[in-house]
């Protein structure tokens, strides 16, 4: 007679929670690299640009350039780090082979997606909050509509976290991931109006900027601080929400198929 193995009680929710916890712990254990370093980089941008331009440029009438710059830098850091979190975690796990420990358990592809993207949003928010905090001693920044700022921060982090999952799954080598980051994410971020209002651009470049979804994330986020923006915050919210939904759908479809993960 075969003995029966006594099985413990299990919960699907615990599986999701643990994957999220692990992904947060992964970046938090190396917070010096994953949080402090991007905060320092943003601070250097702020000090250099504000020193050079603050006395020469005002935006939206009477807002000083340094004040204008802070929300853009916060959002840029948030977006880049949200992308970095999911993409680097996945590529490292794939290359070292330990992705197997996430693929063997009964974690659904929806839970997988939600855990990785939520961890990306959390890292993005940590870095963004860090940039904002270290900026405050240098410049006073209003916060006219915090709910708008938070909405764009979460949606933007979600978009970039999803892009990170896509890139992390697609890339087979670190240089492929670096190409994704350097030739797509970085230009879209830099040309999104982080450092300028698009009204200061010639018309043709204003039109080009409207094709960049990152512009709407930055502009909507900035509206949360100043109550003013280059385009209507509702338009930005619609574009960013639609972008997030489309990227989420694409990522979920890849995960459901097991694309490059279960082959």
């Amino acid at each position: 007679m075969t003995k029966r193995v006594v099985r413990p009680v299990t919960s699907s929710w615990v599986g999701f929670r643990t994957l999220l916890y692990k992904e947060v712990l992964r970046f938090w254990k190396v917070a010096f690299q994953t949080v402090m370093a991007p905060v320092l980089t943003a601070l250097l941008f702020l000090l250099i640009f504000s020193h050079v331009l603050d006395r020469h440029v005002t935006v939206y009438g009477d807002i000083g350039y340094t004040t204008f710059l802070v929300p853009g830098l916060v959002m840029m850091s948030l977006l880049q780090n949200a992308f970095a979190n999911s993409s680097s975690s996945l590529i490292q796990s794939k290359i070292t082979g330990n992705i197997i420990f996430v693929l063997l358990p009964p974690i659904s592809y929806r839970q997988f997606y939600t855990a990785y993207v939520t961890a990306s949003i959390i890292r993005g928010l940590c870095v963004g909050a860090g940039v904002l905090l270290v900026s405050l001693p240098f410049v006073e920044v209003p916060l006219a509509h915090p709910e708008w700022a938070l909405a764009f921060a979460v949606l933007g982090g979600g978009m970039l976290g999803s892009m990170g999952v896509i890139a992390g799954i697609w890339a087979e080598k670190f240089d492929q991931l670096a190409a994704f980051q350097n030739f797509l994410i970085m230009p879209l971020t830099m040309l999104s109006g982080v450092f300028y209002s698009i009204h200061s651009l010639p018309q043709v470049w204003q039109d080009v900027s409207h094709a960049n979804p990152f512009f709407f994330m930055i502009d909507g986020f900035r509206y949360g601080f100043f109550g003013q923006s280059d385009v209507s915050p509702w338009l930005s919210l619609a574009v960013v929400t639609a972008g997030f939904v489309m990227l989420a759908a694409l990522t979920l479809a890849m995960l459901a198929r097991g694309y490059k993960l279960r082959n």
């Binding site: 299990t10 929710w13 643990t18 994957l19 916890y21 420990f101 996430v102 063997l104 358990p105 009964p106």
Partner: peptide, 9 residues
């Protein structure tokens, strides 16, 4: 962590 992945807290 591995226990958690399998739903055991």
């Amino acid at each position: 962590i591995q226990s958690g992945y399998f739903g055991i807290s």
